[in-house]
């Protein structure tokens, strides 16, 4: 089966800046595909090119075999989009937000109302259907946007940081809905800063930095390949650093802690404890966050 979305040397230059720098990826039908990366990595720009709302500079980008520049209306018809910014219509109620949106897809009024109510039940906002949008909490707004993205029964769902700024409960509710949609066969394309979100939801993902894809794989593979199974973490002090350097291990330093990506973490830890005077030593399972920090570096991006 051909990929449902494929990019070949996809490039975007914006105001003379290379925002997306010749990326290649293939997204298969029915999978959840993630784009991870620090701010300014080019994730949102890539999403907007898939959505046909900003033009690409060069390269190819096909959605269901259609080139984005040539058939934007057909592509947009099969997409559902949860944008990074909340752009619900404050002039309308919860239900009206959905029925007004349905009209843009030529869905007849009665059918729109039926679908809207069904979707409001799905995202647990049925009771709020007549509320004003600005009376909703942050989590409810995100759920309403998710419902809005589903009004046209999309084949591909694009989620640009779907849970940014939400509390853990609200985040888990959204994750549960995304999983349910995936089970129904919807292809999910997701960008996120949250490594846990990516590990929980994505079958495959790419890590982007400065407009390029710097790693690709499924979350477990990426951890294995770039970090190893476990990480030794200690407080950063000059003498500790000397010690780690002497042992010749790979390490990174973030926020006052040294993260050592050791081949034999337990052995290393006990060995190090004999040699050096460590404080707050821990051995933990490696996570996607280690991969991310290791590959994208420690400098703040904003």
């Amino acid at each position: 089966m051909p990929p449902i979305i494929s990019a070949i040397d996809l490039t975007k230059i914006y105001d003379g800046v290379l925002v997306v720098d010749g990326v290649n990826f293939e997204i298969n039908e029915g999978e959840c595909f993630g784009f991870l990366g620090p701010n300014g990595a080019g994730k949102t720009t890539t999403m907007k090119m898939i959505q046909c709302v900003i033009p690409k500079t060069s390269g190819r980008l096909l959605v269901k075999g259609m080139e984005v520049g040539e058939r934007p209306r057909e592509i947009k018809r099969i997409l559902g989009v949860v944008p990074q910014d909340n752009n619900l219509d404050p002039d309308f109620t919860v239900l009206e937000n959905l029925t007004t949106y349905a009209r843009y897809y030529d869905i007849p009024k009665a059918e729109a109302e039926r679908r809207a109510l069904e979707l409001l039940r799905f995202v647990q906002l049925y009771e709020k259907r007549n509320s004003a949008v600005n009376k909703l909490s942050g989590g409810m707004r995100r759920r309403l946007i998710l419902a809005r993205a589903l009004i046209n029964d999309p084949e591909i769902l694009i989620l640009d940081e779907p849970t940014a700024g939400l509390d853990p409960q609200a985040r888990h509710t959204i994750w549960e809905k995304i999983r349910a949609l995936k089970r129904e066969g919807v292809t999910v394309v997701l960008t996120t800063h949250y490594m846990e979100e990516a590990s929980q939801l994505c079958d495959r993902l790419v890590i982007m930095d400065l407009g390029r894809i710097i790693a690709e794989g499924n979350p477990r593979e990426l951890i294995e390949r770039h970090v190893g199974p476990e990480v030794v973490e200690v407080d950063s002090r000059p003498e500790v650093l000397d010690c780690v350097l002497r042992e010749g291990e790979l390490y990174e330093e973030f926020g006052g802690r040294i993260h050592i990506f050791a081949r034999n973490p337990k052995g290393l830890a006990s060995e190090l404890m004999g040699v050096c005077d460590f404080e707050n030593i821990t051995i933990r399972r490696a996570t996607l966050e280690d991969v991310f920090l290791k590959l994208t570096g420690k400098a703040l991006r904003d």
Binding site: K76, P83, N87, D89, D106
Partner: peptide, 14 residues
């Protein structure tokens, strides 16, 4: 402020 145009152009409208 409302980003209404952004929301609408995500649908088949240009």
């Amino acid at each position: 402020y409302q980003k209404t145009f952004d929301a609408i152009i995500s649908t088949p409208l240009s």
